[in-house]
């Protein structure tokens, strides 16, 4: 157990280290002054330039610079945005929760809709219902997320006027961003009609969440279906059936548990797709998340923001992937036999 944990810890830190190295190398790769890309401050005169060079050890060797870069990162000094002049840590901590909230809601839909539909389809394999569900999911899987989002906006926002198309909440609700997670912030806010704010926030969530969830739900249905069919063909199911268990008992005791195990690592892969899609959808729905923030940084050539944003997003994805893999490893005894650690 400790061996597994330490292996994962080493894997995690090595990945992080290489990510940091990559983001550090960007300082020299971006077409701007290294000092400016690193700190986000454009030196106004030679003296300030010199002071910054010394503060960040940019006159020393690359190794010293990198070590210093790492210590600054861990100390929470991520530099300031080239454009707004705000500390990047603050901006990222405000944008990242919005993306996480969006992805989490989408993931919820994926699990709640995808797994039951996949189970149903798998149990009824090769029936008309199965074919119907399957063809719908293949269709949904083939739809590009940005096109679907635009279609949703055109239909539900502009044509029928049922749902809002931008932001997380109507700005007339004054919700101070304490945690960055809107649902929690609403609970913490004073002088606000919480029920109204909640329903307004939910309405703002629907379209972006559905556009992201669609593709992932479709693949979740297909993964679950495949897994259920595989398990149903295993000899222990025939054995259970011959013992005289009811189909309900067979499903919950034997089929579901065994079918969900291989789904977990695939789900981890789905999460990365989901976050990527979330970042695309954010720009369409003006969702103030990290994707939108990064796009703004690209437009404005905000090099310091790009560097940190890239690092923050990749760290998040690596963390989630490794955590799910570890969890899977811990609950799945059959995977003990693999010696190496993989992500």
């Amino acid at each position: 157990m400790i061996r597994i944990l330490s292996r994962y810890a080493i894997l995690f830190s090595l990945t992080l280290l290489s990510l940091c190295a990559l983001s550090f190398s960007l300082i020299y790769l971006f077409p701007a002054e290294p000092v400016t890309t690193l700190t986000g401050i454009t030196p106004q005169n030679l003296m300030q330039h010199e002071a910054l060079m010394n503060q960040y050890h940019l006159n020393n060797s690359i190794i010293v610079q990198f070590a210093d870069y790492l210590s600054e990162l861990f100390a929470g000094n991520w530099g300031v945005s080239l454009i707004s002049g705000q500390p990047l840590s603050e901006e990222i901590m405000l944008a990242l929760p919005a993306t996480i909230e969006l992805s989490a809601c989408a993931m919820f839909i994926v699990i709640v809709v995808g797994i039951p539909l996949g189970c149903y389809s798998g149990l009824r394999a090769y029936s008309t219902t199965d074919f119907t569900i399957n063809s719908i999911s293949v269709t949904a899987y083939s739809v590009p997320v940005f096109w679907l989002a635009v279609l949703f906006i055109l239909t539900f926002s502009l044509q029928f006027g049922w749902l809002p198309l931008s932001g997380r909440i109507n700005l007339l609700f004054d919700i101070p961003p304490k945690t960055g997670f809107l649902m929690i912030d609403i609970l913490l806010a004073d002088n606000v009609d919480r029920a109204a704010a909640f329903s307004d926030a939910l309405l703002h969530l629907i379209l972006p969440v559905l556009s992201i969830a669609c593709i992932s739900t479709a693949s979740m249905i297909r993964i679950t279906r495949r897994s259920i069919i595989d398990v149903l063909n295993k000899p222990f199911i025939i054995a259970a059936r011959s013992k005289g268990l009811s189909s309900k008992q067979i499903f919950f005791r034997h089929v579901l548990r065994n079918a969900l195990l291989p789904i977990l690592p695939l789900m981890a892969m789905q999460i990365t797709t989901l976050i990527t899609n979330a970042m695309i959808v954010e720009t369409l729905f003006s969702w103030p998340g990290i994707g939108n923030w990064l796009i703004q940084a690209i437009y404005q050539r905000d090099y310091s923001a790009l560097r940190m944003g890239m690092l923050a997003v990749s760290t998040l994805v690596v963390m989630i992937t490794i955590a799910i893999d570890l969890f899977n490893r811990l609950i799945d005894p059959s995977r003990e036999k693999y010696e190496s650690v993989t992500i």
Binding site: V113, L117, F156, W162, P164, F173, D193, A196, S199
Partner: peptide, 23 residues
């Protein structure tokens, strides 16, 4: 359960209410 989940999701998306209480 499957049908009701699907329906609930759909209904959530289709309630034609005016979405700003303090409009």
């Amino acid at each position: 359960p499957v049908i009701s989940t699907a329906l609930l999701t759909l209904l959530g998306g289709c309630s034609p209410q005016k979405y700003s209480a303090n409009y």
